[in-house]
């Protein structure tokens, strides 16, 4: 900082003291090296997966049950390579994933304004707050029969089920996020001249972001679950084959390796979106706010 030689004024003395205090008090932020991070974060789940695979193989080798009930990991791998060579692996995944993404985005577009209204308008909160809470605990599979009757077996029905599953958790996440905004930020925003839209945009929403993100993450999980339920139940040549339909087809064909592969693929896609999309965003937001404990 400023050198003490240029102007020997009392103010300069003060800036020297201040620079010293700043240096003494500053919080040291250190990032964990990438190798250590990998060892701490990636290794344990990898070991977990290997353990499960090992147990699975062991159970298979000991012939605990008939092999058509429990195929070996290699059989499931065989189903995967079959899909790969048939060239349908990615189209199956993509059919479901694309539906899931579109449905999720629509749920965000609908759930966000609902959440804002419920959080900020008292009568709205009193009226539909409890309903939203209740809907969140209703399994969205329960909507499938109703949606089929209302909309028929088509894409709209799938999206309806996704929305009914995901909108409540996204809205509730935003409500929780807004409720947790410290009143001090709102007061500070008001003194800075933020009100109405500018308050929502510059103060309220950024302050509520961690809670909102948690809601989005849960909203994705609900979207994905609802979609799989809908795909399992609804069968129509117009719909194409997604993961849920693939799974159901394998069941009808009594192919246990295919059924297990279907389950594993559904699980993998759900986890991958969480790990590749939501977790990095969440970590970034929390770290930038100093809310993430480092060095652990």
């Amino acid at each position: 900082m400023a050198s003490t030689e240029t102007t020997p004024a009392p103010a300069d003395d003060l800036s020297g003291v201040e620079a010293g205090l700043d240096a003494l008090d500053s919080v040291q932020i250190q990032r964990t090296p990438i190798g250590q991070l990998l060892r701490q974060k990636a290794l344990p789940p990898l070991i977990g997966v290997l353990l499960v695979l090992g147990l699975w193989q062991l159970t298979y080798s000991l012939h605990v049950t008939a092999s058509y009930n429990l195929p070996s990991p290699a059989d499931v791998w065989g189903s995967l390579t079959d899909l790969w060579t048939a060239g349908t692996l990615f189209s199956i995944i993509w059919t479901s994933l694309w539906r899931g993404i579109l449905g999720f985005l629509a749920a965000v577009a609908i759930g966000t304004p609902i959440g804002l209204l419920v959080a900020r308008v008292k009568p709205v909160r009193a009226a539909i707050g409890p309903i939203l809470q209740g809907l969140q605990s209703l399994p969205s599979v329960a909507w499938v029969p109703a949606a089929v009757i209302w909309l028929g077996i088509n894409d709209s029905m799938m999206y309806a089920v996704i929305l009914l599953g995901a909108v409540p958790s996204i809205a509730n996440g935003l409500v929780a996020g807004i409720d947790q905004v410290p009143p001090l930020f709102l007061r500070a925003g008001r003194t800075l001249g933020a009100s109405g839209i500018s308050n929502a945009r510059h103060i309220l929403l950024p302050a509520a972001l961690p809670g909102y993100l948690a809601g989005l993450k849960q909203g994705w999980a609900f979207s994905w679950r609802s979609l799989m339920a809908a795909e399992l139940v609804a069968s129509s040549p117009d719909l194409g084959i997604g993961l849920g339909r693939y799974l159901e087809n394998q069941r009808e064909g009594m192919s246990m390796p295919g059924v297990l592969l279907g389950i594993i693929l559904i699980l993998l896609v759900g986890v991958a979106i969480d790990l590749l999309v939501f977790s990095p965003i969440e970590r970034r937001v929390l770290r930038s706010r100093g809310l993430l404990a480092t060095g652990r």
């Binding site: 201040e18 700043d22 003494l24 008090d25 500053s26 919080v27 930038s288 706010r289 100093g290």
Partner: peptide
């Protein structure tokens, strides 16, 4: 020089 500093990186006085 503190333009890019995050709030949690600053001391109470800063």
């Amino acid at each position: 020089g503190s333009y890019g500093k995050r709030v949690h990186e600053l001391s109470g006085g800063m």
